[in-house]
């Protein structure tokens, strides 16, 4: 039976919806129709796909205006008379037809500090309980289809927020690492608030709605992260509890000093703090609304929660004294490739 389709074709210079009538068989999904189009009427119709089983997250597109995976949208969910409109993801620049440039997401991934392995635990010695890893495991189900990134109105409708906002995918990454039983960093919350733009999220839950893996992005990652930020900034009871019991494993401030020193001297560069820009807007000026800032007056270019002087064991700066055990300066390992 033939069904009517409208597919957006074009590139960054412009384009439009084109009409096609395509044969549809029982049990097919939208991606099958695109393949049929490629094999017949439009051999150069550009579309990403890989596994065709909802496991790789390549075939993200918008079907009748909703962000979805082409391989997971069964044709049987549409009525026979319905016109099916297929467009590329709106939030990202288009390359051609249904293919968009998703490099925004890869850039944001790079800016999210990686897992910091615990100091002094050898490979093979990691011990974690199943109940402790389960929360993070939910977020590791993510197939990086970027439908959540695409549907989030913070960047979908406001291109200018892209710089300051990392998007749901990277909030769950931050939550995953913050809840990881053995992650050695304690500043995930600060990072989420200050560098990822957690505050932009107004929890309207569209990311959760479109997630093909049904990860509870808002309830299990974003809100807990917001609450964790509240913990250290706003909650009086938590502060009191911390004072009374002198322990707070969430912040793991009670880590042994010896461990902490070990961590700084032992080379774990992947856990190193990323350079953070001063807290000014794109115009180079500080935010006007001082009232909203936790401390009044000019914001510190080192981040608002640093007090000076720093405890020496937290300083990651290495004094440029020649270390006799190391070669003077390690040449960048180019192997002469630039000659």
């Amino acid at each position: 039976m033939k069904r009517h389709f409208r597919v957006w074709r074009g590139d960054s210079s412009g384009g439009d919806l084109e009409d096609f009538d395509v044969e549809v068989n029982d049990g097919e999904v939208v991606l099958d129709i695109i393949h049929r189009l490629q094999a017949t009427e439009a051999p150069d119709l550009a579309c990403r796909w890989n596994c065709k089983a909802g496991k790789c997250g390549s075939c993200s597109m918008e079907i009748n205006g909703m962000p979805r995976l082409g391989c997971m949208t069964r044709m049987s969910t549409f009525t026979a008379a319905e016109t099916i409109t297929i467009t590329p993801l709106r939030t990202f620049p288009v390359i051609r037809d249904l293919v968009t440039d998703v490099s925004f997401n890869y850039e944001k991934a790079r800016e999210t500090p990686a897992f910091a392995p615990p100091a002094g635990v050898a490979p093979g010695q990691y011990r974690m309980q199943q109940i402790d890893v389960e929360r993070s495991q939910e977020f590791r189900k993510c197939i990086e289809c970027y439908l959540c990134q695409n549907t989030c109105h913070v960047v979908r409708d406001h291109e200018e927020n892209k710089e300051a906002f990392s998007g749901p995918r990277f909030f769950i990454r931050a939550a995953e690492l913050d809840m990881h039983p053995l992650d050695d960093r304690t500043d995930r919350k600060q990072h989420a608030q200050q560098s990822q733009g957690l505050g932009f999220c107004n929890i309207t839950k569209c990311c959760t709605e479109v997630c093909p893996e049904h990860i509870k992005i808002t309830d299990n990652a974003i809100i807990p992260m917001k609450e964790r930020v509240v913990d250290r900034r706003y909650d009086p009871l938590v502060r009191l509890g911390r004072k009374i019991f002198r322990r707070d494993q969430l912040e793991s401030e009670g880590a042994l000093p010896s461990q902490r020193t070990a961590r700084v001297t032992a080379e774990t560069p992947s856990g190193r703090r990323l350079p953070e820009a001063p807290a000014v807007g794109p115009d180079g000026r500080l935010d006007i609304s001082e009232l909203a800032a936790p401390s009044q007056g000019g914001l510190s270019p080192f981040g608002e929660d640093l007090t000076f002087p720093l405890p020496p064991e937290q300083v990651t700066y290495h004094h440029p004294e020649p270390d006799p055990t190391l070669p003077q300066s390690e040449p960048p390992a180019t192997g002469g490739s630039n000659s």
């Binding site: 932009f200 009232l291 909203a292």
Partner: peptide, 10 residues
Amino acid sequence: TYSGETRFPL
């Protein structure tokens, strides 16, 4: 424009 819950009053 949109700034979410990053500033006063939200």
